[in-house]
């Protein structure tokens, strides 16, 4: 009998978002403590491919709720069904993307459950789950216990590795869509102004090249060739975003995206606390900055004090020369 429910996230075209695999990893860690397995719930208008893909991760069942009203994610349409299905579980989880962060506290309120958001880890102590959460912009971790009958949590994607296929195949079952709440009648999906890019997603990339305000109007002119040479995603500091040099969804930091790639290259980024909160989990950090006193050098594995307008093109040439 499964006691953890994972809520899957699909993109606009019905493809499974890889972020879901982090929530599955959290579920696998928690299920043992609760004495059972986990199920996955997929909601959407076109779920067949995603449901099929989800059968490979060891879930007891893959539950599918398919309905035309679920074509676009709107919390008021999703929450009633997630809560209705979630009633049968002890723990309901998703990944702390903007989808999970928007939906899951709403689901928690519907289940009269307490919520632990953006968890960095979960462990069992004396049969109880203890959630480890980053607080104060990642400058402290708090360990908390929830005492409601059902608990709801989200997993910080950069802290839970993507689950690997288990070798087994889970059965797929249909579930009915719950009656919509009154709130759903007063909200309307208008549009998604999606940023389309050939590059990997910032939160899922193996290499991230991020630029700061020092790049000024040459942000893309300098950063893009380097990102191309490394197959990297592009990030930006809040200062660069606020100054209008890079779009908002490039922002890495406490209030932007949290990333943990194998290699993070910070170009002209001084290293404000709120930026560091978003990238300090990276395996290897490189900083290029002409100010030797920049705080970023205090955590960079490799620092290069240089003028970025000459050093970055040089680095691009060197990488290209290696082939």
């Amino acid at each position: 009998m499964s006691n953890v429910l994972v809520v899957a996230e699909l993109d606009q075209d019905g493809n499974l978002r890889k972020s879901t695999l982090s929530a599955i990893t959290l579920a696998r860690k928690a299920e043992g403590a609760l004495g059972g397995g986990f199920d996955v719930l997929v909601l959407g208008a076109n779920t067949a491919a995603a449901a099929q893909e989800l059968t490979t991760f060891g879930a007891g069942r893959v539950l599918v709720c398919e309905d035309a009203s679920l074509a676009h994610y709107v919390a008021e349409h999703f929450a009633p069904t997630v809560a209705e299905v979630g009633k049968g579980y002890k723990l309901v989880v998703a990944t702390a993307t903007t989808f999970g962060k928007d939906l899951m506290p709403r689901v928690a309120a519907r289940l009269d459950a307490a919520y632990a958001g953006d968890c960095a880890d979960v462990a069992a102590e004396g049969g109880k789950l203890v959630y480890k959460r980053p607080m104060f912009a990642g400058n402290a971790y708090g360990y908390c216990e929830l005492s409601t009958a059902i608990q709801v949590a989200t997993a910080r994607q950069s802290e839970f590795a993507a689950a690997e296929p288990s070798g087994s195949t889970s059965p797929i079952e249909k579930v009915a869509k719950a009656a919509p709440s009154g709130a759903a009648a007063r909200v309307e999906y208008v549009s998604l102004d999606a940023v389309t890019s050939e590059r990997p997603q910032l939160t899922e990339a193996n290499v991230v090249v991020a630029g700061g305000r020092a790049l000024k109007e040459k942000f893309f002119e300098v950063i893009e060739p380097l990102a191309d040479a490394l197959g990297a995603a592009i990030g930006a500091s809040r200062a660069a975003v606020d100054a209008g040099y890079a779009p908002g969804d490039y922002q890495v930091g406490q209030t932007g995206k949290i990333v943990a790639p194998s290699l993070y290259i910070a170009i002209g980024i001084s290293g404000a606390i709120q930026h560091i909160a978003g990238m300090k989990g990276s395996k290897v950090i490189v900083a290029i900055n002409k100010d030797p006193e920049a705080p970023i050098f205090q955590l960079a594995d490799y620092g290069l004090v240089a003028d970025l307008f000459t050093a970055v093109p040089e680095l691009v040439s060197a990488l290209r020369a290696r082939g």
Binding site: T97, V187, E188, S191, L192, A194, V195, Q201, T203, D249
Partner: peptide, 12 residues
């Protein structure tokens, strides 16, 4: 502000 863009909703 959502991952990957801006999602517009109309709420009454």
């Amino acid at each position: 502000e959502v991952d990957g863009g801006v999602l517009s909703l109309r709420v009454r």
